[in-house]
Design a protein around this nucleic acid. Sequence first.
DNA 1: CGTCGTTTTGACACGCTTCAAGAGTTGTGG
DNA 2: CCACAACTCTTGAAGCGTGTCAAAACGACG
Lengths: 253, 253
Amino acid sequence: MSDSGLDLQRFLDRLTNRSILTEQEQQAVLDLPFRVVRYDANHDLVRLGEQLNHACFVAEGLIGRFDQNARGERQITSLYIAGDMPDLLSVVQPTATSALVALSNATVLHVPHQAIREAMATYPALAEAFWRDCMVDAMILAQWVVNVGRRNARSRIAHLLCEMGYRYGARSEAGAAAFRLSMTQNHLADATGLTPVHVNRTLKALAADGVSFRGKAVRVENWEVLARVGDFDSNYLQAEMEPQQRLRILQPN
Amino acid sequence: MSDSGLDLQRFLDRLTNRSILTEQEQQAVLDLPFRVVRYDANHDLVRLGEQLNHACFVAEGLIGRFDQNARGERQITSLYIAGDMPDLLSVVQPTATSALVALSNATVLHVPHQAIREAMATYPALAEAFWRDCMVDAMILAQWVVNVGRRNARSRIAHLLCEMGYRYGARSEAGAAAFRLSMTQNHLADATGLTPVHVNRTLKALAADGVSFRGKAVRVENWEVLARVGDFDSNYLQAEMEPQQRLRILQPN
DNA sequence: CGTCGTTTTGACACGCTTCAAGAGTTGTGG
DNA sequence: CCACAACTCTTGAAGCGTGTCAAAACGACG
């Protein structure tokens, strides 16, 4: 805990939403030391090839994982919102193979690898929980391949909006939804493998489906419609799991 | 070990190429029980949504991870060759979110989750090594997003051939390379997010770069040229690591 | 009030898809 | 060992989705 008022509770929640942890194990997560770092939009959290000795936990803002082709055209391969741990893999693989950039102003917690390693050594179930969390990110990544590989512009964008709406927990019973997504149309283009110009035109077309994205505010009149247009099935997100679906493969000692 | 003459050595090699394991830990891997299963081409190893109680290790052949869009168009999101463990994530996430299909006739070892879990409980460093292996697959996945998102057909196919050539260890000093890749042009299309027709035309165009893919045999006159066309940088594969690059974060007890 | 990034619009070009049909290849059963 | 079926691969012609280039309108911010 630090005097910033920030703590690790939301990251623990993320873990316990999918993994079963004992009281002690949960406490070990909350006791991890961290340093609060603020990033302005468009600043790097991690550079390509950098050797890391800490992991980044997102407390606030939107973070993107960036790669690029030979011509320098950027491709966002992952998006991370508050509560996400974009960098868990660095614990086990400290050389960054892609860059992490703040898409909005962001607050990030730097957690020393050493502390995470010690916690995992004491409580192997923590390693399991971290590993599981990484695998959810990998399943999202596989869906992104499908998205850019086998969907047209309209579906791609709709799918991305669905995913983010779902991750923000923005669906409502009425079928409408609204949430803030701190991306420019340029970022949207980089995430969907399109050009900004075409993203702009496609967003205009999506208005006919009751979807608007203006000034970082997403409004969806009918969630079902958007999900159909975006060919979206939330299964891969493994979010909001019922307690009985949560997992632990290592027995508590 | 079984009477089939197959053992787990090559999978242990895969692990120890990136992770440091003690003698005992290595033996624990070799001692894992398994069942040998043969699959004909185009048969499923794992179906979507299936609940698994074993992991699949590829002893021989080519395996693909398949997803699809609403129109049923398929997208291959990962390829696995002999020595790969496509299914490690199922240890920690037993519900399959995509299907695994044999692209060629294949020999697969089914390893019970329970045995893997027991080995990890005894030797936490094994969990670390498995986790690390999963993360390499995730890094490949991120590159695939870049490939389908930000490269044209020629580069996409070249990149895929580069990756597979590299993974097969097929590069030679002379700059030429040749290897067998048991995929049809249809499969290539599914892996690159293109149509079979366009793959066919593009392969023809690649001949001008000294690359041929005829009847599952890939021949590359000049590896450098292919790597340039495919915008390929092998870093993300984390293959062939020098001993001093190998990692262990948990101390041996 | 001016600057810089973002969004919007138009005209045009091109890469890839679609549809269709024929040729080649592989596997199988008689 | 041949004959046939079922995949693969190949080629052509036409259409369309997305990219490219350019410029103007808009908006946020100092």
